[in-house]
């Protein structure tokens, strides 16, 4: 069961109030009539479907009835952030990969840093948790 933070209601609510609505940030072609079959088919049907970080639309169906976005891990199901329509995610797959890479380099560069307790995974988790709307 997800507990989802609705960025409009500004409240944590249970999953049953919401409907998932698929991949977010798919822009409708400016001129549909100018699309060829491939472009139009891609827009309608083809999806990223990633194993990992996924940006997706949800509808607060029995709440404010507004659409908003969630960044969620499709393997652990952890919700990393929620944000309003029109906004951009602060957590992306690239962002997390970069963070992990830096952390790994720090760890290998200087063993004393790791001994000091600045473990890589913990650090990025804290960064994630500090972002508004994040929850486990």
């Amino acid at each position: 069961m997800f507990h989802i933070y609705c960025p409009y209601c500004e409240e944590l609510r249970e999953e049953e109030e919401f409907h998932p609505k698929g991949q977010a940030h798919i822009a409708r072609p400016e001129e549909p009539d100018a699309c060829n079959d491939e472009e139009w088919g891609d827009y309608l049907f083809f999806r990223d479907n990633p194993r990992g970080i996924h940006h997706e639309m949800w509808l607060h169906a029995v709440g404010c009835r507004k659409f908003f976005n969630i960044t969620r891990n499709t393997v652990s199901y952890e919700i990393l952030e929620t944000y309003k329509m029109g906004e951009q995610p602060t957590i992306t797959a690239e962002h997390l990969a970069r963070e992990e890479k830096t952390a790994r380099e720090e760890k290998t560069d200087s063993a004393q840093v790791a001994e000091g307790g600045q473990q890589t995974v913990g650090a990025s988790d804290a960064a994630v948790a500090s972002i508004k709307g994040a929850q486990a």
């Binding site: 999953e15 479907n49 199901y77």
Partner: peptide, 11 residues
């Protein structure tokens, strides 16, 4: 929702 976790929600 999309998921690869081989588990789903109780609802």
């Amino acid at each position: 929702y999309n998921g690869y976790g081989q588990r789903g929600s109780y609802p």
